[in-house]
Design a protein around this nucleic acid. Structure first.
Lengths: 120, 120
DNA sequence: ACCTTGGATCGACGTTCGTCAACATAGACA
DNA sequence: TGTCTATGTTGACGAACGTCGATCCAAGGT
């Protein structure tokens, strides 16, 4: 099996990516891109980290605010990177601390993929 | 590390499971349960299989209708089992063929987890 | 300059995952 | 009963994943 290099997912690329899951079958390429996002939320620790950022004021949080999820600091950093690579979070350094933000457009696109699939 | 036995997810259990991701941080248990569903959609082949079922007439399809995704028949069966265990699909044997159906309630719950998280 | 602190990266480890060939099982039909 | 076809199950293998300790880099404070 060949290992494909998946580029970072841009918000607008995701939004324009795919129709609701029930409209038509996803192509192999569409499925490949979309699966990256779902996989990123498919780990309990990442889901908690993401929820911590999303529920923080302004949809933004310093790593120091959210790193108490029961795993080591390198592991937290590793998971945040995965969420960033999937396009679900963006990060920015401001002075001493690094802040993570949710990408609302990507989130909304994933949501519509599912909710509009439910209305058959 | 202890391996937890995750029971099959009932549709109503999922719907009542978790608030939108931005409302409050998920607890460890909530994250554990929810991650199972996202992980199930976190594989390209499973995503295509799911989309094939969801887009088929009536939200229902025979295995024979959807097994052309480029992997062997045992692999298709394996992935369908994963989707069933995650509560996203249900299966029923009718005579010779086995039919898979989407679980709209679970799908809608996952969608709201995301879309309502986007409206911060 | 030096030290401290926040966060990312590296290297290694055990586990889980995706895949297949081989086999098993369940109906339908003769 | 027996045979054919449609699916599920098993066992094995390599790849990917989650985790950690050790290390490194960037910013601030002394």
């Amino acid at each position: 099996m060949t290992t494909k290099v998946l580029p970072l997912l841009e918000p607008e690329a995701v939004a324009a990516c795919c129709p609701p899951l029930s409209e038509r079958p996803l192509t192999a390429e569409e499925a490949e891109r979309t699966a990256v996002m779902f996989k990123a939320l498919g780990d309990p620790v990442r889901l908690r980290l993401f929820s911590l950022v999303a529920s923080h004021e302004g949809g933004e949080a310093c790593v120091c605010d959210i790193s108490d999820v029961g795993v080591s600091q390198p592991t937290v950093s590793h998971h945040l990177k995965k969420l960033r690579e999937a396009g679900l979070l963006s990060s920015e350094r401001r002075g001493t601390w690094v802040y993570y933000r949710v990408e609302p457009a990507v989130l909304a696109a994933m949501g519509q993929l599912l909710t509009r699939a439910a209305a058959v």
